[in-house]
Amino acid sequence: MQPTLKSTVKCTDREVGEITRIIVDPLSLEVSHIVVGDGTGGQERQVPMSEVQQIVGHVVHLRIPSSEMGRFPVLNRDEYVTTHEVEIAHLEERLHVEPGEVLVPIPDLERNIKRRTFFTNLTHAIGILLGLPLIYPVMKYLMKPMYLPYDNRWIKVGNVNRIKVEDTGVQFKFRKKVKEAFMPEVEILKNVWLLKATPEVLDEVYKGKDMQFRDSQGSLIWTNNRAFPYVAYSGKCPHLGCGYKWRKVRKLPREIFLCPCHISIYDVSGKVLDGPAPRPLDPVPIRVSDNGDVEIIDVEFKAGVRDRIRIL
């Protein structure tokens, strides 16, 4: 039981005063001392709780005679701060030293508990009714540019006379016109890798089947003929979308496609030789005019998945 303020303090022989303050240990959060005043506003002495024998209601019994009170130190107020001036966690929950509750009446109009509950629930309901219809328009607002129709334009990327050797990757950079939302049309630099493939490599690229490309509605826009010798690979690595290179590396007998990001390695047919890539390089629609000009459709597939899922 905790001592309370204003309690009477009795020694074994007589009453010696009342509790004027209580001192708390900030670590254990227990009452460590009571401060006993003689009731005349004179000296206050600090009595440790170990000297308290029992607390009966508002009377605190000490285990010593009044003659021994003098051995307890006089309170030096400057050595303490009030609990309002420090930040000690959980102190209020542990201590009950207030001299009792201080009350103010609830206004008559607020005494009906049922009505208060009703209004609390009504407030929540109104909030939900106001908020819910906003979810759809806000989501639509944010999602406006997220799903765009595919871009099926043919883009001229160069001339095949640049390709001198069969089964060798040649990078064709091209500038693509992009008109995004409210922005003026700009040209961005992209690239594709072209090769003039021998029949064996073509077999490996197309697995003996013509490759079809479709738009978002599923209708056919172009077919890459399996016997057509020129192959264009999207410049985007099917692993996580970086740009890869055609290069020689130590340990491998011939040149390969290498992505410097996560070191995916593909052979000339786009097959994964090593590294984390989940699928071969992505051929894109290609056509070559009589004078050797190459056009492609800049198709992009989702990176990092086994299947080719078109996104652009």
Binding site: H262, S264, P278, V305
Partner: peptide, 10 residues
Amino acid sequence: LLRLKIFGGE
């Protein structure tokens, strides 16, 4: 970590 072969594929 993502360069490791065991973290390759889908």
